[in-house]
Design a protein around this nucleic acid. Structure first.
Length: 536
RNA sequence: GCCCCGGUAGCUCAGCUGGAUAGAGCAACGGACUUCUAAUCCGUAGGCCACAGGUUCGAAUCCUGUCCGGGGUACCA
C-alpha cells in the first residue's frame, strides 16, 4: 500500500472516530515545501457541515490520527485549516532501494492480459506526411508506449480510405502527368506525382491505356512507402494497416447498411441514403450513400469500427485531428444503434499545428503541394527534437510551430536538457569505475542528507504516480514535464554535490542515487520514444 | 447562427478533477568551470492568468455572458 493510501485510510478512520461525515479525501504535495510533503484540505471541506472553525477540526483530526510508526515525521495544521504531513526520509530511502532493484520501476500492470488498439496517423496516401501530421504520429506512438508500459498488448493501427474520391483524383493526377495532359480540377499538383508517373513509365513503358487502374494502385504503393519511411525515421511503426477497400470486398459495407435498415435507421431522399441520426438523439441526419451511389466516408468508418470492436480489444483508441471533432459522435451513435458497447472506445482529439515561417502563417495543403514534409523536418532537427517538440504540449492546445525558430533552437532544444542529465550520469558512473567506485547494494542511504539529494529522491518517488496519471489521461506531456523536473533536480544536485570523492561511503551512497536517477530518466525517455545517450 | 478547442511573462507554452507566494524554456541583463561534461548552475528583470459577472472559507482552475483566434457544422476526408 502506498503512503498516500495509508494516510487516506488513517484520515478516514479519524473521521469516523470523531463522528464526522465521510469525505472523498485528497492528498497532494503543496507548492510550498515549507508545508511538508503532502497536504489535505479535509478540514476545510467539513466547516460547513460541522459548523466549526476549520483549524479546530484539523487539530481534532490530527489528535485522533493513528499512523504506523516511522511513516510520518511531523503533522502540522496551518491556516486556513490545512493538514500537512512531513514524510520521514526513510520512506524515500526505501523508494531508492526499490528503483535499484527493479530496472522496470514505474511499470504498471493495469493492462495485464488486456488488448488495446491505437489507431493513429491514418492519413490517406495522397502525398507525403507533413509537419501537421507529425503531431498525431508522435502523440499516437507515445500513447501506445504508455499502454505498453502498463502491460497492455498493443496493436498500432493505420487506417486509410483508398476507395473514395480523393484516391481516384490521385490516380487521375498521375495519369495526367503520364500522358502530359492537364491535371483534373482538384488534382494533386506536387512534383512527386510527376515522379510516380515516371516510375510507371520506366517499369511499364509508354503503352498504358487511359483509365488503367495501375495509376492509382502504383501511386498508393509508392506514397505509402514514402509515408512508412518518414514514420520509421521518427521511430514509429504500425503493426496493422487497414483500408476501406477491404470492407467493400468482404461485404461489411453492405452488411452495415442492411443492419441499420433493420433498425429502421435508414431512409432515402433525393436519391441519397440517409442515416436517421435524429431518431437516436443526434442533431442531424447524415448522408451515408450519395446520390451518385458512392458512400461518404462515414459508412466505411462505421464498418471499420465494427470490425475493430469484433476483434475483441479491451480498449480502442482513436486519435483524430480537430477536423474530425464533429464526425466521431455519428460513428459511435451508429455503433450503439447496432447494439455495440462503445464504452471501450476512447477518442483523443488533438488541435492543429499552425506553421509559422518568416513570421507568417503557412497554410498547408497536400493538393496544392503547399507543405513542408515531416521527413525534411526530421532530417533538419533530428527525431528526438521533433518528438519532444510535439509531445511537450497538451493535445488540446493549438500549437504554433515556428520553423525558423525550430531550426534555430534545435541547438538549445529543451530535449537536450533531459538527455544531458542522462549523459552526465553515465559519465559519472564511468568516472567512478575508473576510481574503483561502482554501485554496491550495501550502500548507506542515510548519508543522503543534502537538501538537493532529498529533493531529487522525492522527485524519483513520484514517477509511478506520473505514469498512472498519464495512463488515465493518455496525455504524454505529463511525462515530458515530469522528466524536465527530474532533470532539473538532478542538475542542481550535480552542481551542489560531488559524487565521486575521497569519502568512499558517501560516494557509494551517491552512486546509488545517481544510478536510480538514470533508471528513471531512461524509462521516461523510452516512454516518449526519445533516446537516452551515454554521452553528448 | 449552433457545436468543440484555446486566450497565462516580449515569444512558445506548463499549471486547469478548486487551495496557501502563478511556473519553465527562449529572448534581455549580471554572476559561477585548476573539480564527475558550462548542452549546466546561481541571480536580476518581466503578470489586472482576454474581459465582466457568479458559485465558494478560497477561482488561472468551476458556471454564465462578451470579445479575439483555430476547427467543425457538405451528397469533401
Amino acid at each position: 500500500m502506498t503512503i498516500i493510501l495509508q494516510l487516506i485510510q488513517a484520515l478516514a478512520d479519524s473521521l469516523s472516530a470523531l463522528g464526522l461525515p465521510e469525505r472523498d479525501i485528497k492528498l497532494s504535495p503543496p507548492n510550498n515545501p515549507d508545508f511538508g510533503d503532502l497536504s489535505s484540505n479535509l478540514a476545510l471541506t467539513l466547516t460547513k457541515d460541522v459548523q466549526k472553525n476549520p483549524i479546530q477540526i484539523a487539530n481534532d483530526i490530527k489528535d485522533t490520527l493513528k499512523l504506523p510508526k516511522g511513516l510520518i515525521d511531523e503533522i502540522t495544521v496551518t491556516p486556513p485549516g490545512f493538514l500537512n504531513f512531513k514524510i520521514g526520509q526513510s520512506y524515500y530511502y526505501q523508494t531508492l532501494a526499490q528503483i535499484l532493484s527493479d530496472q522496470n520501476f514505474g511499470r504498471g500492470i493495469t493492462g495485464k492480459g488486456k488488448k488495446a488498439n491505437v489507431e493513429f496517423v491514418s492519413a490517406n496516401p495522397t502525398g507525403p506526411l507533413t509537419v501537421g501530421h507529425g503531431r498525431q504520429a508522435v502523440l499516437g506512438d507515445c500513447v501506445a508506449r504508455i499502454l505498453q508500459w502498463n502491460s497492455y498488448d498493443v496493436t498500432k493501427e493505420y487506417y486509410y480510405n483508398n476507395a473514395g474520391r480523393q484516391m481516384r483524383i490521385l490516380g487521375q493526377s498521375v495519369e495526367a502527368r503520364y500522358f502530359n495532359t492537364d491535371l483534373p480540377s482538384d488534382g494533386y499538383q506536387g512534383d512527386y506525382i510527376v515522379d510516380i508517373a515516371e516510375v510507371i513509365r520506366s517499369e511499364k513503358g509508354d503503352n498504358i491505356e487511359h483509365g488503367d487502374p495501375i495509376f492509382q494502385k502504383k501511386a498508393e504503393e509508392i506514397i505509402f512507402e514514402d509515408i512508412s519511411k518518414s514514420l520509421k525515421k521518427l521511430n514509429i511503426h504500425h503493426d496493422v494497416f487497414s483500408n476501406e477497400q477491404t470492407f467493400y470486398d468482404d461485404g461489411a459495407i453492405d452488411q452495415t447498411i442492411s443492419d441499420l435498415k433493420n433498425k429502421d435507421l435508414i431512409y432515402e431522399t433525393d436519391g441519397a441514403t440517409w442515416f436517421k441520426g435524429t431518431a437516436i438523439g443526434m442533431d442531424e441526419d447524415r448522408v451515408l450513400i450519395k446520390s451518385t451511389g458512392e458512400p461518404t466516408y462515414r459508412l466505411p468508418d462505421i464498418a471499420y469500427h465494427r470490425n475493430k470492436l469484433e476483434r475483441d480489444f479491451n480498449l480502442i483508441i482513436d486519435i483524430f485531428g480537430a477536423d474530425h471533432m464533429g464526425t466521431y459522435p455519428d460513428i459511435l451513435a451508429a455503433l450503439n444503434a447496432l447494439d455495440y458497447d462503445t464504452e471501450n472506445i476512447r477518442v483523443l482529439i488533438h488541435q492543429f499545428v499552425t506553421l509559422i515561417k518568416g513570421g507568417k502563417k503557412v497554410k498547408m495543403s497536400t493538393r496544392t503541394a503547399d507543405f513542408i514534409t515531416l521527413e525534411k523536418l526530421t532530417k533538419e532537427i533530428g527525431p528526438d527534437v521533433v518528438r519532444y517538440f510535439f509531445i511537450m504540449r497538451g493535445m488540446n492546445s493549438h500549437l504554433n510551430f515556428d520553423l525558423d525558430l525550430a531550426a534555430d533552437q534545435s541547438e538549445k532544444n529543451p530535449v537536450y536538457y533531459l538527455q544531458y542529465a542522462h549523459a552526465r550520469i553515465c559519465n559519472i558512473i564511468k568516472h567512478g569505475e575508473s576510481k574503483g567506485i561502482s554501485y554496491q547494494s550495501n550502500y548507506n542511504a542515510k548519508l543522503l542528507n543534502h537538501p538537493a539529494e532529498i529533493r531529487l529522491l522525492k522527485k524519483l518517488d513520484q514517477f509511478p504516480t506520473i505514469i498512472e496519471n498519464s495512463l488515465q489521461t493518455l496525455e504524454p506531456q505529463l511525462i515530458a514535464n515530469y522528466l524536465h523536473d527530474t532533470a532539473n533536480r538532478f542538475h542542481k544536485f550535480y552542481s551542489e554535490c560531488h559524487v565521486i570523492t575521497e569519502d568512499i561511503d558517501l560516494s557509494n551512497a551517491r552512486i546509488a542515487l545517481v544510478s536510480a536517477t538514470q533508471t528513471v530518466l531512461a524509462n521516461g525517455l523510452d516512454l516518449l520514444g526519445i533516446s537516452a545517450p551515454d554521452k553528448m
